[in-house]
Nucleic acid binder design. Structure first.
Length: 289
DNA sequence: GCGTCCAGGTCTACC
DNA sequence: GGTAGACCTGGACGC
């Protein structure tokens, strides 16, 4: 067993970050609600390594068994929990608008993400046009069938190369991805041959609307999926409205009645470049009661 | 048990 | 640029 400790920024809440959205519920993430720990199976040079992340007084503790460079593990944990992203500008906007102020007290706002944009991209496509239980099953099958395995049987998320070796039938018959199956075949091929580099979205200098257009060139990625991905790469100006978010807004701010998306957009408009994060925090406040 | 609806939408064809 | 219809799955619901 190996262990590293990672210093934490002042305005960080481990509990709120790991439960910030549904990713903790999708393999290879695993949340232990009682222990308050997050488990994830990383992959390095084809080796799967399961790590347990917990919070202690001296910082974030990461325990793992298996061959992975500790520097790499450190970087990936920092990325997953967004430890190097500054949230003061968001908190300033919250103070100014006097809405969603609970995030200040809780130090919330960080959205959990995967070590790679590729993984977030595949998972986001799995969230479209289906129930959450279907999303869970699709991701679970994908990971369990073709993800690299640790000595004790835990699975990592498959690499683009692993996904590119699988025929469309696998995605349709085993993963049960339905019409998304051909999208995954095409996506894995484009990434492995270098035509598409999702990781470059993290550091892209394109304006957000241009980057969104790039994301939408991926089959299966529409407005909702692109705006969700934009949030995960650190751009929060899209609301990523889906049926759940709309329903929550109607309940909380519109007496349970439906309203046009424009009304929702107007409500969060004053948060500027952080409006997507503002609506997400506003709608998930009750998760942390 | 069966049919219908719909869920954390998107694509394509057509206008 | 906007819209209609098709697309897969699986759980909830009514009968």
């Amino acid at each position: 067993m190996s262990t590293i400790y990672i210093d934490l920024p002042d305005e960080f809440s481990f509990g709120h970050t790991i439960r910030s959205h549904g990713w903790y519920d999708l393999k290879p993430f695993e949340l232990d609600w009682e222990q308050g720990t997050l488990t994830y199976t990383f992959v390095d040079n084809g080796n799967a390594v399961k790590a347990v992340i917990s919070e202690e007084l001296r910082g974030l503790r990461v325990d793992w068994e298996g061959p992975i460079d500790s520097g790499r593990l450190n970087r990936e944990v920092r990325h997953v929990l967004r430890l190097d992203e500054g949230f003061e500008p968001f908190y300033d906007a919250v103070r100014k608008e006097r809405r969603v102020e609970w995030v200040l007290e809780k130090r919330a706002g960080r959205l959990l993400r995967s070590p790679t944009v590729f993984e977030d991209l595949v998972k986001t496509i799995c969230t479209t046009n289906c129930s959450w239980s279907a999303t869970r099953k699709m991701v679970e099958k994908l990971v369990d069938e073709i993800g690299a395995m640790t000595a004790d049987g835990a699975r990592a998320f498959p690499t683009p190369e692993a996904m590119a070796t699988m025929p469309e039938d696998f995605y349709r018959e085993v993963m049960r991805a339905g019409y998304r199956s051909s999208y995954f075949v095409e996506l894995a091929e484009r990434v492995t041959n270098g035509e598409l580099v999702p990781e470059s979205w993290l550091t892209s200098e394109l304006p957000t609307f241009e980057l969104k257009k790039e994301m939408k060139k991926v089959k299966g990625v529409g407005d909702y999926a692109a705006e969700n991905l934009l949030k995960l790469v650190g751009r929060y100006d899209g609301l990523a409205l889906d049926s759940w978010l709309r329903a929550e807004f109607y309940k909380k701010h519109n007496d349970g009645k439906k309203c046009p998306d424009k009304k929702i957009e107007k409500y969060y408009h004053r948060f500027g470049e952080f409006r997507g994060l503002a609506i997400w925090c506003d709608m998930t406040e009750s998760w942390f009661d």
